[in-house]
Amino acid sequence: MIYIGIDTGTNTGIAVWDNRQRSFISVGCVAIHKALKIVEEYHQKALEAGTRCIVRVEDPRQRTWFKQMPREEERKKLQGVGSVKRDASIWEDFLEDLGVEYEMVAPKRNVTKLPQDRFKKMTGWNKSTNEHGRDAAMLVFGC
């Protein structure tokens, strides 16, 4: 079975975990339209092979906690939050239409912002990653 983690945003983190091999196939960051295509391809391969492909998407719409910050910083942060919330809606609609099994995951239910060295130690993934790819990977690591 294949699990795909999605960290929504301008830079879409995407990680593919093979639970039979107990390892990552890929961890990276791409534009949203490329991530949508990757998910569609894995879903199609799973259908052809008679197996399952499950997508886990970090869903900032489920965030219920906010810390205090200066007004200008708050305004910019809220604009960014609005765009990732929109992206989460796009993902949910896309996955629903495609018929992919998926779960929208609250940010607090995921380990995020791991430095690369700690990520490597935890997962065994030794290739270069960025924050978005690592956040996506932690959505599916160990599934």
Rank of each mutant, 00 (worst) to 15 (best):
Y3S: 01
Y3Q: 03
I6E: 08
D7R: 04
D7S: 03
D7P: 01
T8D: 06
G9A: 03
G9S: 07
T10N: 12
G13L: 04
A15V: 09
D18P: 04
R20E: 11
I25T: 14
I25F: 14
A31N: 11
I32V: 12
K34L: 12
A35C: 07
A35I: 06
L36V: 04
V39W: 10
E40K: 08
H43Q: 08
H43S: 09
A46S: 09
A46Y: 06
L47W: 12
C53I: 06
I54F: 13
E58G: 04
E58W: 10
R61T: 05
F66N: 13
K67F: 13
Q68G: 08
E73C: 05
E74M: 10
K76Y: 10
Q79I: 05
V84S: 09
V84K: 07
V84P: 04
A88I: 00
S89L: 14
I90A: 09
D97A: 03
V100P: 03
E101Q: 05
E101K: 05
V105W: 12
A106D: 14
A106M: 06
K108E: 15
N110E: 07
L114C: 05
P115S: 07
T123W: 05
G124C: 02
W125G: 00
K127R: 11
S128H: 10
S128C: 01
E131G: 02
H132Y: 04
G133M: 07
R134I: 01
V140Q: 09
F141M: 11
G142K: 06
